[in-house]
Amino acid sequence: MSNIMSALSDLRLLDNLARGKTFIHRINPLVKLLTTVVYLTVVVSFGRYEISSLLTFIFYPVLIFALAELPVTPILKKVLFVQPLIIGIGILNPIFDSHSVLLGDIAVSRGWITFLAIFIKSGLTVTVSILLIATTGMDRLAAALRMLKIPKIFVLQLILTYRYISVLMEEVHRMLRAYSLRAPGQKGVQRNHWGSFAGQLLLRTFDRAQRVYQSMSLRGFNGEYHTGKSAKLGLIDFAYFSGWSIFFILARIYDIPVLMGSLLIGVMK
């Protein structure tokens, strides 16, 4: 039961973080969205065995963490939620791809390398997506999507799903509390109550959603979700986008860690 409430406060954490006032928060949401899209595209485009050049891309989330003054642990915890899935996808790679390659003096199966690549890629992409929400907020993100001319029905779907998750969770929490108080010494909900429990939950959330919708339409809501300020694109926004994009593309073409390594070795020689 407490899990639901802590999950709810986790969810609200992103909303709270998005209210920050740092340099990163003030960047135009559209620019942040596009930068993230470029980042994701570039990271995903790496081949299965290219780990070293992938490492350059840690730089971006690290810098955002620092500049936007975000707490690292709670956000990385969210990333960890996804990782079991990724492990599930990649865990068979070492078995299927058993060619061994030499890494220095150690021979490893190529499968391990592809597995690691998947692991790093997913870690980076999920982190960066969460960072986008944590520095922008769902509302402004929706406004950015509308600026990109995404149909309002999709944007609305996204934003209302996000809003209603907490409604649903509160409802579950209340029902579980009422249930557990009258079912002492029981763990969870008994199997023969699952049906009515789920049915009740559905009906209750329908009712609640109905009332929320009524209160929205009484205040003039007609399908367009207004978030107020649609900030103009400034020079800084432009510089931010082009700066990062150029960096991402360069890092895609040149293997920066190797270059830096050879530079260092050259200097030492």
Partner: peptide, 23 residues
């Protein structure tokens, strides 16, 4: 509404109060 939770669903009080005028 009877239950204010039905009426307040934005991320800040300001946005909630601004919801109507913006519409």
């Amino acid at each position: 509404f009877q239950d204010p939770d039905d009426q307040l669903f934005m991320t800040s009080v300001y946005d909630d109060v601004a919801f109507g005028p913006r519409n």
